[in-house]
């Protein structure tokens, strides 16, 4: 369990153990009751009948689920790489001392972050279509995800750079590095390391957001799930489709978190990293006004512990 929790209470004595048992029992009863009721309702509405699950006995359907999964993944990979690149560029531009660069970068970042991804996708797909620049749904999904997640990641990178001790950059300048060298060789590598948990969490968000593509007819996993639900010849398997496609998404997201954490552990064994992340907390003087929120923006601040559990 996370370190923070255990210091909040003593090793329970006999009285506390008894009380905790009662409360624990209560939780078990409530959860089991909810579970039992759900299972009962599922069975009662015929969700466990063989007919409802027939769809998932066909190899052909699994083959198509595989293809839909590939389309989800290809949109994700392209968006993730694009967002990382865009995020890096926007962060560097915003941190630049050249105002011609930093002002537009700030405006672009702030505006892109304020528009819902779904609205962005619709803008690209329907909006550009209506002014004679038709765009495929795949392109609309990928560009919208790059724009939104890129601007979020830009703020993550920037927060990472700003959380570094000033001496880091100064030392670089002192040995005669150009500002570009200081950024690329000294600041960014450390910032990326320090913000790794937030970056991973944002990538999970990107993966989940590919599922918005079904609204603009990109036939990814959720689109296929909806198509399966509408199969009257298969008895409209609404709940089986949701359960199976949902399980695929959860496994994908957990795999992604786990993979990223493994990579992160391999590449960084430095203790400093933890210190850096801890330093990046609200109240840290010198942290720019809205940088701290980055950890939480869509990510829900699992900068320290959240995903180590998801991944572990």
């Amino acid at each position: 369990m996370s370190g923070g929790a255990s210091v909040l209470y003593d090793v329970p004595g006999p009285k506390a153990i008894a009380r905790n048992r009662i409360l624990g029992g209560l939780v078990v009863v409530v959860v089991l009751a909810a579970f039992a009721f759900t299972i009962f309702r599922l069975a009662d509405s015929g969700q466990f009948s063989a007919e409802k699950w027939e769809a998932f006995t066909y190899p052909f359907i699994w083959q198509n689920i595989g293809l839909a999964l590939l389309r989800t993944l290809s949109a994700f990979v392209l968006s993730a790489v694009g967002a990382l690149v865009l995020g890096f560029l926007l962060a560097v531009a915003r941190l630049s001392t050249v105002r011609v660069l930093s002002i537009p970068a700030t405006v672009v970042t702030e505006v892109l972050r304020a528009i819902p991804v779904l609205v962005l996708m619709m803008l690209l797909y329907y909006g550009f279509g209506s002014i004679g620049v038709p765009m495929s749904s795949f392109a609309a999904v990928v560009i919208a995800l790059i724009a939104y997640n890129g601007s979020v990641l830009a703020e993550v990178f920037r927060a990472g750079v700003e959380s570094l001790p000033k001496g880091q950059g100064e030392a670089g300048f002192a040995i005669g590095m150009t500002s570009r060298q200081v950024m690329n060789l000294i600041l960014m590598p450390q910032a990326v390391r320090a913000m790794m948990p937030v970056i991973i969490a944002q990538l999970v968000v990107t993966l989940k957001d590919t599922a918005l593509g079904f609204v603009i007819t990109y036939n990814e996993l959720l689109y296929y799930a909806r198509y399966l639900m509408s199969q009257t010849t298969l008895g409209n398997p609404i709940i089986p489709s949701i359960l199976i496609i949902g399980a695929i998404y959860i496994i994908l997201c957990l795999l992604l978190s786990w993979l990223a954490h493994t990579v992160q552990k391999r590449t960084s064994r430095s203790v400093k990293v933890k210190v850096k992340v801890a330093a990046h907390h609200p109240g840290n003087p010198g942290g720019a006004t809205d940088t701290q929120m980055m950890a939480a923006q869509d990510v829900g601040t699992d900068d320290q512990t959240g995903h180590s559990q998801a991944g572990g």
């Binding site: 299972i39 466990f48 063989a50 699950w53 027939e54 998932f56 006995t57 066909y58 190899p59 052909f60």
Partner: peptide, 21 residues
């Protein structure tokens, strides 16, 4: 539920051949 599904999947693999026919 999981067990039920596994059993069904096995039965279904055989049924699929018949059904596609």
């Amino acid at each position: 539920m999981k067990r039920r599904f596994a059993a069904m999947a096995a039965a279904g693999a055989a049924a699929a051949l018949v059904l596609t026919g």
